[in-house]
Structure formats: C-alpha cells, structure tokens
C-alpha cells in the first residue's frame, strides 16, 4: 500500500505537467483551431524531437551533478561534419558515422576534462562550446554547406507512414534513456555519483568511467540531434544551434531534474520538452511575438521549480 502511495507521489509531478500541457492545448485550440490540425501536431513533434533527444542526454549529465554547455555548438559541429562528408563522398552512412564520431570525441573529451582533469563540467564544456563554435566558422569560412544526396535529407524531413523520421528516432532515444536510467546497473551508478561522488567511489563504483561514459552518451545524442537539425535546414550553418543547450537544460529543470545532481527522470524531461514546444508553437500560432514568448518561458521555469520545491516540503 505504502509503496503504491509513494510511486504516485513520484509521478505526480509528471502527471501535473501533462495536465498543464493539456490545458495549454485546449487554450491554443480555442484561440486558433489550426493548432490541433494533423499538420501542426506533426510539426510540434518534429520541433520537439531534436530537443528531446539531446535533453535525454542532458538529464543524465545533470543527474551526475555536471552540466553540458557545449550542446549547441556540438549540434552545429556534428551537423556540419555530416554535411561536409555527405557533400564530398555522397555516402550517407559515412556522413552519419562521421557526425556521430564527432559526438563521441567531443563528449569523451568533455568527460575526460571533467572526470580526470577534475575541471568543473561547467568550465570544461564552456571551453569546448567556444572552441567548437570557433572551429565551425574557421572550417566553413562562415559559409553554409550544401549537399545533393536526398537520402541524407530524409533524416530530418522524411516520414515512415505518417510519422516523421525524427519522431521515430526520438522515441527510440527516449526508450533507451528510460531503460538505461531505471533498469540498468549503470543507471544506478549515475544517480549514485550525482548523489554523493565520494561515497560512490568508496562503494567501489568507477566514478571516472561513469562520468566519461555519460558525457559520451550526451555527445552522441547531441550529434544525432545535430543531424536532424542540419538535414531539416537543408544546409550546414556555422551559426546553427545557438542557445540550444539552454533549451535542453530548461526542459530538464522544468521536468524536475535537480541541478545539484542525484535526482531527475527522463520522462520528466520529455514532458518538459513537450510543454515548452507546445507553449512556443501555440504562442506563435496565436500571434504572440518572440520577445513575449521568452518572457513566458522564463516564468514557466520559475513556476515549475517553485512548485517542485514546495511539493517536496509537503
């Protein structure tokens, strides 16, 4: 009995957020019936897909008590590398592999700087954020990169039946994230390291390895998101993905992940992404300008975290 009660309390937050999403949907539909059209719903899912994919990784990074500021730059860099390889070889497999490799390398080096070099994750990824953005401009000379291979373009724009490919990728990533954090031994280690790094080490957990792997997962997921972004845009832009990391962090925080580590759920983050995407999409549809959109986003962050801290107290 008690266990059941506690479970309910744990998922109460997600239910509450879903409630807010539904209310928002109703409001937008009343204001503009276009909102609930098949076209727009698909659009929302596609808009949310790449944020959700990277936010799954970001949630894990935040759970181990760190942060990744380089996500936006990596979205750009991995997309660019994919686009350039596709342009010169016309081989989709090579292009995708190259982009993912960039993710592994960047994530890995973030992890090594943080776990072995003992740099705070904030600093390590602040540095890689800056370096990657600089490199993106150097390599492209500030110009966009275009390719002709249509199969590559399909990653971001294609459909399987009526479901956009990015949405399918997103679902796979979410399932992977939920499985890893709740069903795998490694998932426990993530929470343990974030809860108390020293106690984890004293319990025989290879803290350094856990941190590096989590950053690498983050890197790979971000470069998947980068591939979707670049193929949706149709060209590699050295300015792509600005402030993208903040969207991921916002989704995680709104979804209940604690910035001090040790607490958070993938599903919470996914609902967080959904909430933010529905909010932005609806506001655009009913004609609220982007500046006001930012104001509302900010308010949502404060309200959701306040609500969280107060439910915890009770």
């Amino acid at each position: 009995m008690r266990e059941k009660k506690k479970m309910d309390l744990g998922s109460l937050r997600e239910l509450l957020l879903i409630g807010v999403v539904i209310i928002l949907c109703i409001i937008w539909t009343i204001m503009n019936p276009q909102f609930i059209s098949m076209n727009n719903v698909t659009n929302i899912l596609r808009q949310g897909s790449y944020t959700a994919i990277a936010a799954v990784g970001m949630t894990m990074v935040i759970i181990i008590g760190e942060i990744d500021l380089s996500a936006g730059s990596l979205i750009c860099a991995s997309g660019l590398v994919g686009a350039m390889v596709c342009k010169s070889t016309n081989n989709v497999v090579l292009a995708v592999s190259a982009a993912l490799l960039v993710g592994v390398v960047v994530g890995g080096s973030n992890g090594v700087l943080c776990a072995v070099g003992k740099l705070p994750g904030f600093i390590a990824t602040l540095a890689s954020m800056t370096v990657l953005r600089g490199l993106a401009y150097i390599i492209t000379g500030g110009n966009s990169v275009v390719w002709t291979n249509e199969a590559f373009t399909k990653i971001g724009t294609g459909y399987v039946g009526i479901v956009p490919i990015p949405v399918i990728i997103m679902l796979v990533v979410i399932i992977f994230g939920v499985f890893l954090t709740s069903k795998l031994r490694f998932g426990r280690y993530i929470y343990a390291v974030g809860g108390n790094m020293e106690a984890s080490r004293w319990s025989g957990i290879a803290v350094v390895k856990v941190k590096i792997i989590v950053y690498m997962i983050m890197g790979v997921l971000t470069s998947i998101a980068g591939l979707i972004v670049v193929t949706r845009l149709g060209s590699g832009q050295p300015s792509a993905g600005q402030n993208f990391e903040m969207d991921c962090i916002t989704a995680a925080v709104v979804g209940g992940t604690s910035m001090s580590g040790g607490r958070g759920k993938i599903i919470g983050t996914v609902v967080g992404v959904l909430l933010l995407t529905v909010l932005t999409n609806g506001m655009t549809l009913v004609g609220i300008n982007t500046y006001w959109q930012q104001v509302f986003k900010g308010i949502i962050i404060v309200v959701s975290v306040l609500a969280d801290t107060h439910t915890k107290k009770n």
Binding site: K183, L184, R185, F186, G187, R188, Y189, Y191, A192, G195, N196, A199, S200, S203, G204, I205, G262, R263
Partner: peptide, 24 residues
C-alpha cells in the same frame, strides 16, 4: 551513504558490481 537515495538503493550499491547481469 548517499543520503538522498533510498535505503534499498544504498544497500545495493556495492553489490551491483558483483551481479552477473547488467540489467537489474
């Protein structure tokens, strides 16, 4: 201890590494 973790999870921390399966 990891104070914010459950009793159950704390008790299992050092045992997990010994289990054969990576899936809990």
């Amino acid at each position: 201890l990891i104070l914010g973790m459950s009793i159950k999870d704390n008790m299992l921390l050092s045992k997990l590494g010994q289990l054969k399966s990576r899936i809990l």
